[in-house]
């Protein structure tokens, strides 16, 4: 191949949008809204796994909550025909993530697993990613958080403790994914098995509303779950191609 040909091939390669299709894994989560009871176990599990700081009442009053996964609640109707719908909201790991393009220092990007990764050490704290995120799932460290001793002994050594001025968000428990990949490699396997890795929220969910896995594998539980006709994306109209798929809540016909 001549130099020009090489150049042309490379050019075409680099001009191909969204080549995350070719990633090693495409980690995906489905959340069945028909099962979610809004209990909040996922929230606490996430806090425990990912060293999410305690914010305190005064800071919460100033609107500085810090929960990588949160339960949103939406009321419908008025008393007595009133309904409450829960929806867990976490980083959607969008394939066309608005947050990634806006970071001037590439502190957030798409990694080879199709995850939306956040590099804490690289972050300079412009907070523009949080503005660009339509799901509002990016959280900022407004100051150095403290773990009064001995609460600090609980901190997970696999996850870094973020300093002030750094943006953070759900990672799909990337430390667990890393570990599973290492185990697979040690066992001489090419790929992580389905169900071998689960983020803390999925693991703890008592109604089994959440399923996590690789959608590249058509046999995986999550692919099956995505096959459900109830599958949809939240805020589909903003076209972010999320990796979190929700299954529609089922509304029973209650004739009263």
């Amino acid at each position: 191949m001549s130099f020009m040909d090489t150049l042309r091939t490379r050019w075409q390669e680099y001009r191909k949008p969204g080549y995350y299709d070719e990633f090693d894994y495409a980690w995906t989560m489905t959340i069945d809204l028909d099962r979610c009871t809004g209990c909040g176990a996922c929230v606490t599990a996430c806090q425990a796994e990912n060293n999410i700081p305690l914010v305190g009442e005064t800071e919460l009053a100033r609107g500085r909550e810090m929960q990588w996964i949160r339960i949103e609640r939406y009321w419908e109707g008025e008393y007595p025909n009133v309904k409450l719908n829960f929806i867990p909201m976490l980083c959607q790991h969008c394939d066309a993530a608005p947050c990634e393009t806006v970071c001037p220092v590439s502190a957030t990007y798409h990694n080879q697993d199709g995850l939306n990764a956040q590099v804490y050490n690289r972050c300079i704290g412009t907070r523009s990613c949080a503005v660009y995120c339509p799901y509002e799932v990016r959280y900022f460290n407004y100051y150095d958080h403290e773990w009064p001793s001995p609460l600090d002994q609980q901190l997970n050594p696999d996850v870094s403790v973020r300093e002030k001025g750094v943006m953070e968000k759900c990672t799909f428990c990337i430390q667990r994914i890393r570990q599973a990949k290492d185990t697979a490699k040690d066992d001489g396997r090419r790929r992580v098995l389905d169900g071998e890795v689960q983020p803390a929220c999925v693991q703890t969910c008592a109604t089994e509303a959440m399923v996590f896995g690789d959608r590249n594998d058509p046999q995986s539980q999550v692919s099956q779950s995505m096959n459900d006709p109830r599958a949809y994306h939240v805020l589909e109209e903003v076209n972010t191609a999320p990796s979190v798929v929700y299954l529609k809540k089922v509304e029973a016909n209650v004739s009263t």
Binding site: E13, A97, C99, T101, S106, Y109, H110
Partner: peptide
């Protein structure tokens, strides 16, 4: 812009590595 993007390839927002408009 294009050179540094090619030097250290990482995808942001599903855009091409060499994204013309920006």
């Amino acid at each position: 812009a294009a050179g540094t993007a090619v030097l250290y390839v990482h995808v942001t927002g599903g855009r091409p590595v060499i994204a013309i408009p920006p």
